[in-house]
Computed example of a mutant assay.
Amino acid sequence: MKWGIIDFHCDALSKLQENPNIRFEEDERLDVSAKKLRQGGVGLQCFAVFIDDEQEKARIGRVLEQISLYRTEVEKAGIPLITSRQELASLNAAGGGTGGMLSLEGAHGLEGNLKYVQNCYDLGVRFLGITWNHANWAADGIMEPRGGGFTQKGLELIKLCHELGIILDVSHLSLKGFWELTEAAEKAGKPFIASHSNSINICDHPRNLSDEQIRTIVRLGGRIGLTFVPPFVKASGPVKMTDLLPHLEHMCSLGAENHLMFGSDFDGIDEHIEGLENAACYVKWKELLLKYYAEPLVDKWLSLNAMRFLQTWLPATKKAL
């Protein structure tokens, strides 16, 4: 495989923020560390900037602090920040290695100030999950009881992200919000992703995607990151790696073969799939997939689908600050 594995979601930065004594290079308290990424053959890891939307500290200062932690901890450990197609090509030309990307998980930390969106883009953020589970100034999350969609300012946020080139992420977004974003994306000719969600047809959890949502993401040319969160994989009992396969199969039956990738949610979960406890376990996950599927198909899911998306939708070059 030319490219290493690509994972579209982890929460290591928030762990680093909450535990200043953790070092990213190698720490057993992290599911995702530099050492484990190398051991797992991960070529590109997306790091979420996550702040609990129920906390008073959901403020731009904490967002900026996590972005700074990427520079001081993750890049220091030899994982450069990838913000453009040019940097992606340079990483490959240098012989691979491991790179990182930045996403913002929930717009609540932006405090309703659209100028902060530009600031985050300038600092390297390329993906934005509009909500976490609850409501914020932009839209309702999937766990918000009223099930609302976007606010007027939230619709302005969509437009701005489309203009800047920030890719929107519907994992955690309300159903109404999903369909409102679909309408806006169709008009703009822009795809969106679900960075860490599974199939609700296989596991009936509100964080998973319906068949209609899956078909819509496929139709728009987006991507779906199957996730390793046990309750999103199986309703009860111990969850094994093979329990993820029905999600793969079902999404492929809906036309998603070329649109699937993975978004582990490592460091954002307290329980793990047996055998998939951290980034180093991607070796075992690949071995298992190869027992059931041909290598070209496995390569698509582990890296090529995500890579083709990035080569299309990341900006061509990094803009000078």
Rank of each mutant, 00 (worst) to 15 (best):
A34C: 08
D299Q: 15
L13H: 07
K57A: 11
E277I: 07
V49G: 02
N258F: 02
P231D: 05
P145W: 01
G225A: 03
G147R: 12
F150Y: 15
I269V: 15
T83I: 07
M143S: 15
E18S: 13
K190T: 14
N258R: 12
I79P: 03
E28Q: 11
G149Q: 08
K57C: 10
T98H: 03
G112W: 00
L104R: 00
K159M: 00
K319L: 11
E163T: 11
I142A: 13
K159F: 00
G112H: 05
I269E: 03
L226E: 07
E87D: 10
L314M: 07
I130G: 02
I217L: 12
I273Y: 03
Q118A: 11
D299W: 04
V170Q: 04
E257C: 11
R223I: 15
N136F: 06
A194K: 06
I130W: 04
Q17S: 14
A316H: 11
K35W: 06
A188Y: 06
P296D: 10
D265N: 13
A94S: 14
G124I: 01
T131A: 01
K35C: 10
G43Q: 02
S253V: 08
S103E: 11
L81G: 11
L157M: 11
K176N: 10
N21Y: 09
E274L: 12
H162G: 12
K234R: 15
K35D: 13
W179N: 01
T216A: 03
F24P: 13
T72V: 07
S236W: 08
G147Y: 02
T242V: 15
G141V: 02
L288A: 06
K153W: 00
K284Q: 15
T83W: 00
T131E: 10
